[in-house]
């Protein structure tokens, strides 16, 4: 069974593309291919004019493609600096020039996290708390801040505002705009179409694994997108 078929897609620098579609439309499959979670795809990915074969999430992040998953972005049992540097912990070698074993540089990770969060006006009182103690908005803020720190060139956000209080949604959307201002390209997945229309430059509608439409936001409307999502003619 093919989850995605003939999906052509292009994103410019500092562009925000909204990815919408009903459940089972292929949104998750599409972004997981870009993020390296599904290495067995056919087709080509060109990133900054170079052909890429993304075989795992580590490679994707190395190339500058980061994904903020709805539930899998953060390690609940690790503190805030540990999550900013999740999988890319700052370290120093125990034996000088010998690369292994590596010791955690907790002081530097905390200092860098403080600087980063301050610069984004994300005020977290105690960085040593595990992220499971943060609210939904705070968790998303930490995940997005991580993408900014690592200078991701393409950030994929999977339902970044789902299950957030209204006030926190606004704050997360502000961080998305901050990312765009830093020339980062963003793929924004959400079921909230009004939110999508408020923040994206283009909208791609997926339906049953195929592209139903891909248009600039000023060339379409909420009603058209809904009709495309459910398969009615526009």
């Amino acid at each position: 069974m093919i989850a995605l078929d003939q999906v052509d897609f292009a994103i410019e620098e500092a562009e925000v593309i909204g990815l919408v579609g009903d459940n089972g439309a292929g949104k998750s499959t599409f972004v997981k291919i870009l993020a390296g979670a599904y290495p067995d795809y056919s087709g080509d990915i060109y990133f900054q004019e170079k052909k890429l074969r993304v075989r795992n999430p580590h490679e994707a992040r190395w190339h500058g493609i980061d994904i903020v998953y709805q539930d899998l972005a953060l390690a609940d049992n690790i503190n805030i600096p540990g999550n900013v540097f999740l999988g890319r912990e700052l370290s120093r070698s125990l034996f000088g020039k010998v690369p292994f074993p590596k010791l955690l540089d907790n002081t530097k990770m905390k200092r860098e996290s403080e600087k980063l969060l301050d610069s984004l006006e994300i005020d977290l009182e105690d960085l040593n708390v595990n992220v499971e103690n943060l609210s939904g908005g705070q968790r998303k803020a930490v995940a997005i801040a991580r993408s900014i720190y690592w200078r991701a060139k393409l950030v994929i956000m999977d339902e970044p505002t789902a299950a957030l209080a209204v006030k926190e949604v606004g704050k997360v959307l502000k961080l998305v705009k901050d990312l765009k201002a830093k020339r980062v390209s963003i793929i924004f997945i959400s079921h909230n179409l009004q939110e999508i229309f408020s923040i994206v430059d283009k909208i791609m509608v997926l339906r049953r694994g195929e592209v139903a439409s891909f248009s600039r936001v000023q060339d379409t409307s909420l009603e058209i997108v809904i009709r495309q999502m459910v398969g009615q003619k526009a």
Partner: peptide, 18 residues
């Protein structure tokens, strides 16, 4: 640190490139 992250969630660890 990676042992703790894997124990917390193998999926989170995998997507973090661990």
């Amino acid at each position: 640190r990676h042992v703790y992250i894997v124990g917390g969630s193998q999926e989170v660890a995998y997507f973090a490139g661990i």
